[in-house]
Write a protein that binds this DNA or RNA. Structure first.
Lengths: 139, 139
DNA sequence: CTTGACCTTGGATTAAACTCTAAGGTTTAT
DNA sequence: ATAAACCTTAGAGTTTAATCCAAGGTCAAG
């Protein structure tokens, strides 16, 4: 059994984060001392690691809450339940990547067109491009 | 001259958005009627389009505020001022893409390992991977 | 018995870019 | 003259994942 500060240190997070996870139903200490101090067990520690690993692969806390409920009752769920969530998240990530790639491509185009020198911005190609409908069409 | 609703419609945004831009110093109508109604000129419209095009290539409103100040006083700025901001934004976008690609790669690995079938999640490879230190190492 | 390191709570704050609400004023058309 | 469609304001709410703060309680060491 360890106190919140010890667990936080092991995990490399702040105690605030652990309390935040508790408030949001992700991780509660298995015991409290008479004075209210939180005490975390080895299983709590494992659960915390599970949470952090989920975060590491891109799941949101809402997703993780969902995964945790599968984790504590595996026999009521099947592989598909888990895999479908993983796939959904991957698709979500891929969509965000695609959006960012559009940004990147546009920015690269803008960079290419501009001399980037000490010349006055009076005739800057980037500003011009942002002024007209073109690569950056809005309507 | 047009009212806020007309400009919003032309731009495909809400009137709220235009008021928000005004409050944040991005776009103010050049006139107000006696009763306080906002009236936007053609130049205001152009400025709004500039803003939306900047958004479209990935600039934040803070970035745009900065670009607008260059735009209204081009002679005091040079191409490099504009290009450096564009490059900084591209690098920023590329960093975000790199992070998301790590997520995607991890998720793809997880998906590969899991059968995704009707089997009980008792021995689900995804759950197992999230339980152990591995691809998803946290410490 | 006091110091310092720990812990408790509730509530406020952060960033970004809106979006919504309430309560009311203005314009245009009939 | 009244209804519909517009406009005004201030201020609160949304999302995500914490992070910070104030005021105070607890615990081990010396």
């Amino acid at each position: 059994m360890m106190q919140i500060g010890q667990l936080a240190k092991k995990l490399g997070v702040k105690t605030d984060t652990l309390r935040f996870y508790e408030k949001n139903g992700l991780l509660a200490p298995s015991t409290r001392s008479d004075s209210g101090y939180r005490y975390y067990s080895g299983a709590d520690h494992q659960r915390a690691l599970f949470i952090l690993r989920c975060k590491k692969v891109g799941f949101s806390l809402a997703d993780i809450k969902d995964l945790l409920s599968i984790r504590i009752d595996k026999s009521s769920h099947c592989c598909e339940d888990v895999k479908s969530r993983t796939t959904a998240k991957r698709l979500d990530v891929e969509m965000r990547i695609a959006e960012l790639e559009l940004f990147r491509n546009s920015l690269v185009e803008l960079e290419k067109a501009c001399c980037g020198g000490e010349e006055s911005a009076e005739y800057c190609s980037i500003l011009d491009a942002l002024e007209e409908k073109g690569v950056t069409d809005v309507n």
